[in-house]
Every structure is written in C-alpha cells, then in structure tokens.
Amino acid sequence: MHMPLQDNLGLNLLAANEQQASHNREHFDQWRLLCLNIMSSPGAGKTSLLERSLAQLSGDLAMAVLEGDMTTQLDADRLGALGIPVVPITTGRCCHLDAGMVSGGLKLLCQRLDPAKLDLLWVENVGNLVCPAEFEVGEHLKVALLSVTEGDDKPLKYPVMFREADCVLITKIDLLPYLPVDVDRIEAHIHQVNPRCTVLRLSASSGEGFKAWHQWLWQQLAKHQGPLPLANPMPSPALTTAQG
C-alpha cells in the first residue's frame, strides 16, 4: 500500500500565464502606456475598428498595434497604410493570444521604436469568443466587439467574454435597417451578464458612434495616466456611460 501525501497549491490554473501577463503589464506601466485587448468572433470588425480609430487618433496619440489576427497580408497592409507600427504575432494554431506571445511581440516592437513614447497599444486578439476571455495578456482594459449580424443571443451564449469586458462595442450598426435584429435587446443581454460595462454602438463603415467611442478612450487614458500633454486637447468630456 502506498502512503498518500498531499500538497496544497491553491494556484490558478492559468498561473503561469498570469505571471507573464503581470510582467507585461509592469512594462506597460513603466512606459506609461494604456494597453487594450480587442476581442470578438471572427469578422465582427476588429481590424475595421482599428483602421478608423487609428486614422482619427493618430494626430493626437502615439500608438502601435500587436496583431494576433492576421488572416491575410491584406490586414497588415490595411493597418500599415496608416503609418502606425504593426507587429504581427504568430499564434501557431492557438485559438487565443497568451501573455507569452504578446511578450514576444513586444520584443519585436521594442526593436522598432521606443515604447516609452507610446500612449496607446492595441492588441487585436484571435477571432474567438471563448478562451481569449480567460487568457490575460497584460492589458489594462478588455474591449469586446459584437456585430449586429451575429444575433442578440450571443451575450448569453458566450457570457464569460461579455462578463469580463470593460467595454462592449456593438458594431456594423449601418446594417440595422436591413436586419431583423433588435439592438436594444443585444444591449440588454450584455447588461444582464455585466451590468456595469460600457456599451457603445458604432459602424466602422459610416463612422457613426466613433465620437462616443473615442471619448470613452480619452477618459480611460486620462484615468490611467493623468492629463496628457497633448497637441490637440481632449474633446469636451460629455460623459457617456452605460445605460440601463
């Protein structure tokens, strides 16, 4: 008979990843930059969001992108055309980014620029509504996208993602006139699993809703690093928070 002996670990299953994520975040804080983890199912509009936001914000903010969802070279070209550094992250066949992959991307980024000069780092995660929610990469804020074409039950089907998000963007609202979908219901479902998160509606095609989205971003930047020495001052902060 063997004599069983036990060790209590009380360790997070993802402890190794969390350790690396904290390490990444220490760097971000040292560089005084805000890191956003952008997540959604494939095709919900992450790259399109980045395209428009980068174009509109590049005059005021120094930014870079870690791209974990490079489906085609076209995506790289779309973002690269804006003159903002984009570092592709190779995920192998992994269905999410983890902190180690992002750390690898950061090393490449640091070869190209001085990260302390950055204000904002965007991480475009792999298109997947499941595990990216559990794998921290060192981000300060999680932004989840849900397009109006995906149906209003997604927040209840993938509740962990929407629970973890700090901000949910309902995307492609330019398509609403053509779809039998109730956008208020989508928003209500998001708030049922995450009553405190900010929910915003926008369209990367028409640009509708980007003012409120960028206002939210400016607020987060101000909270994170205090007032920034900006070329153009921040637009007057008409507070836009979650309703309901």
Partner: peptide
C-alpha cells in the same frame, strides 16, 4: 438571461463559479 428569479435583477455579484484553481496534488509514494 442570468437574471435573478426573485427581482429579475441582472447578474451583478458572482459568489462562486469563476474558479480555475489547482487545489492540490497527491503524491504516489
């Protein structure tokens, strides 16, 4: 929709259910 049956309140506080914990290991001597 994760609402409370009593007041139809949204899911605000989670008491448990988010655990991903390695509790312990047993050794085989």
């Amino acid at each position: 929709g994760y609402r409370s049956p009593c007041c139809s309140h949204p899911m605000e506080e989670i008491i448990h259910g988010r655990e991903l914990r390695i509790r312990s290991v047993d050794y085989d001597l």
